[in-house]
Deep mutational scan, measured.
Amino acid sequence: NDEAKKEAEKLWKNNKSEDEIKERLERAGISPDEAEQWLQELR
C-alpha cells in the first residue's frame, strides 16, 4: 500500500489528473474510499 501511495504522490507532482491517480491506486488494490482520502491528503 505504501508503494502505491508513493506512486500516487509522484503522479500528483507530475500533474496527473486525479482520476488517473485514483485509477492507479485502485488497480494497486486500494479501495476507492481510501484512494479518495489519499488524494485529499495530497491536495
Rank of each mutant, 00 (worst) to 15 (best):
N15W: 06
E20Y: 13
A35S: 04
E3G: 08
K13D: 03
K6R: 12
L39H: 00
N1S: 12
K16S: 09
K6G: 04
Q40W: 14
K6N: 06
E20M: 05
A8C: 15
L11F: 05
G29F: 02
K22L: 12
P32L: 08
G29K: 01
A8F: 07
A4N: 04
S17D: 07
K5D: 02
K13Q: 10
E3P: 05
A28M: 15
I30A: 04
G29R: 01
S31P: 11
E36S: 08
S17H: 04
E36T: 06
E34I: 14
W12D: 00
E36R: 06
A8N: 03
K6P: 03
E20N: 03
E23A: 12
A8M: 10
D2C: 15
L42A: 03
A8E: 01
K10C: 15
I30Y: 08
E18L: 11
E9D: 04
D2Y: 13
N14E: 14
K13E: 04
Q37E: 09
Q37Y: 05
L42R: 08
N15S: 07
I21Q: 02
L39P: 00
S17L: 05
S31N: 08
S31F: 03
N1L: 14
E23P: 00
K5M: 05
A35N: 01
E41G: 07
A28G: 06
K6V: 06
D2H: 12
N1Q: 13
K16E: 07
I21W: 06
E9G: 05
A28Y: 15
G29P: 02
S17W: 04
L39E: 00
G29N: 03
N1A: 14
E34L: 15
E36A: 10
R24V: 15
P32K: 11
A4H: 07
E41Q: 13
L11Q: 03
D19K: 12
E23T: 09
K16W: 13
I30Q: 01
K22Y: 06
E3R: 09
D2I: 13
L42V: 02
D2F: 13
K13S: 07
E36I: 06
P32H: 08
Q40P: 01
E26M: 15
R43D: 01
R43W: 08
L25H: 00
N15R: 07
Q40C: 13
E23D: 09
L39M: 08
I21F: 04
R27W: 11
E18H: 09
P32C: 09
Q37D: 05
K10L: 13
I21H: 01
K5H: 05
D2N: 09
E26W: 14
L39T: 02
K22E: 03
E18R: 06
W38V: 05
E34P: 02
D19M: 10
K13W: 12
Q37P: 00
Q37C: 12
A4G: 05
E26G: 09
K22I: 09
K22V: 04
E23G: 07
A35Q: 07
L11N: 03
G29H: 01
R43G: 02
E41L: 13
I21L: 03
E3A: 12
N1Y: 14
Q40D: 07
K16A: 14
L11Y: 06
R27G: 06
K6Y: 07
E3V: 09
E26F: 15
K10T: 10
N14Q: 14
K6E: 06
G29C: 03
Q40N: 11
D19Q: 13
E41S: 12
L42W: 13
A28C: 14
L25T: 01
Q40G: 05
I21C: 04
A4L: 15
E36M: 09
L11S: 04
E41C: 15
D33S: 10
E34Q: 14
